[in-house]
Computed example of a mutant assay.
Amino acid sequence: MSAPGVLVLAKTPQPGRVKTRLCPPCTPEQAARVAAAALADTLDTVAATTADARILVVDGDHPAPAGWQRLAQRGGPLGDRIANAFADARPVTDGRGAAAATLLIGMDTPQLTAAHLDTAVGLLDTADGPDAVLGPADDGGWWALGLREPGHAEALRAIPTSTARTGRLTLAALRRRGLRVHLLPRLRDVDTAADAHAVAARCPAGSRFAVAVAVDVDVPSPAAVGR
């Protein structure tokens, strides 16, 4: 049996459309460069995994790397776009002879490693493994969701996103469906300048994100970090 597929849900890094919470201290152009670097590092990490299928699910015209599939995001609210991404990717994974199991991540955790993803993929690919894997984020959301049966992503349509309760609500919704959920390591995602510097410090050597943060994101004052 082939390994599950990995989806990367992303926005094309255009000024004014990505990483707006970095502004200030960043300009929209600087924030877009930081987002582009985060996406590039994330795509490289996914390319280094054992996943059978790699799919960029993108809002905008950003191209997929060679050897990847590319899908357009559908829907308005983020929960709908995530559920639609799982649904739209299923023919791609099934068409490659893979199990329908799918792992979805975003572009906001460039510090993640191929080992993080291979662990999640391996759990979904194990006969007696969990039905779902969920990676909680420090801000109360989540950075990864993997489903052995992608149809369960329908539960996300009713969950408010980008709140301090999103992760807890997602976990509860999955368990209400009778799913066995394995929690992945907690990671910090990038919203603010403080997040950007904290995450950059955890990125591997050669990280484009770390370089972009050093160049384009002013170090926040202690007062700003405390807010």
Rank of each mutant, 00 (worst) to 15 (best):
C203P: 05
T119N: 04
A198S: 12
A37S: 13
G16C: 11
A87N: 00
D189A: 13
L103H: 04
A200W: 02
D191V: 09
A198N: 03
F209V: 11
I105V: 15
A40P: 04
T161Y: 02
T49Y: 05
A89Y: 01
L184I: 06
A51N: 07
P222D: 14
L22Y: 04
A35N: 11
E29C: 03
M1F: 08
A155I: 14
A172L: 10
A137R: 07
P150S: 12
D59Q: 10
V215W: 06
S207V: 07
R180M: 11
G135Q: 07
C203S: 12
A223R: 14
T49E: 07
G226A: 15
A48P: 04
P63E: 13
G129T: 08
A72S: 11
G95L: 12
D189K: 00
L147G: 04
I105G: 03
L124E: 05
I55Q: 01
T20W: 03
A53E: 07
L56I: 03
V6K: 09
G79K: 01
A196M: 09
L147A: 07
P4C: 15
D128A: 15
P222K: 15
A83F: 04
D131H: 08
C23R: 08
L134H: 04
P136I: 02
D139P: 00
G226C: 13
L117P: 02
R81T: 00
A32I: 09
T163V: 10
S207A: 09
D195T: 12
D94A: 15
V190K: 03
G135T: 04
R227W: 12
A205K: 11
A37Q: 05
P77C: 07
A137F: 05
P136Q: 03
P63T: 11
L156T: 07
S221E: 14
L78W: 06
G178R: 14
L103Y: 01
E154M: 02
A144K: 02
P24T: 12
N84R: 10
L7M: 10
P15Y: 05
L174P: 02
A35S: 15
P25D: 05
I159G: 04
L9P: 01
I105K: 03
R90V: 11
A101S: 15
S207I: 06
A100P: 13
R96N: 14
V199S: 06
V92E: 00
V133P: 00
H116A: 08
L124K: 05
T166W: 00
V18F: 03
L183K: 11
D191Y: 10
A85W: 01
R33P: 03
L145E: 00
T166Y: 00
D44Q: 15
V57L: 06
I105C: 08
T166C: 05
P4S: 12
S221F: 03
T12A: 14
A53Q: 06
A137V: 07
V57G: 00
A200I: 01
T49M: 08
D125F: 02
T27K: 04
G76A: 10
A212R: 04
A210Q: 08
D195L: 11
R177C: 10
A200E: 03
G5F: 05
T109D: 06
G141N: 02
A87R: 11
A38M: 13
A89P: 03
A31G: 05
V213L: 14
G5T: 10
A35P: 02
Q73M: 14
A66R: 11
D218G: 13
L112T: 09
V57N: 02
A48R: 15
H62G: 00
G178A: 14
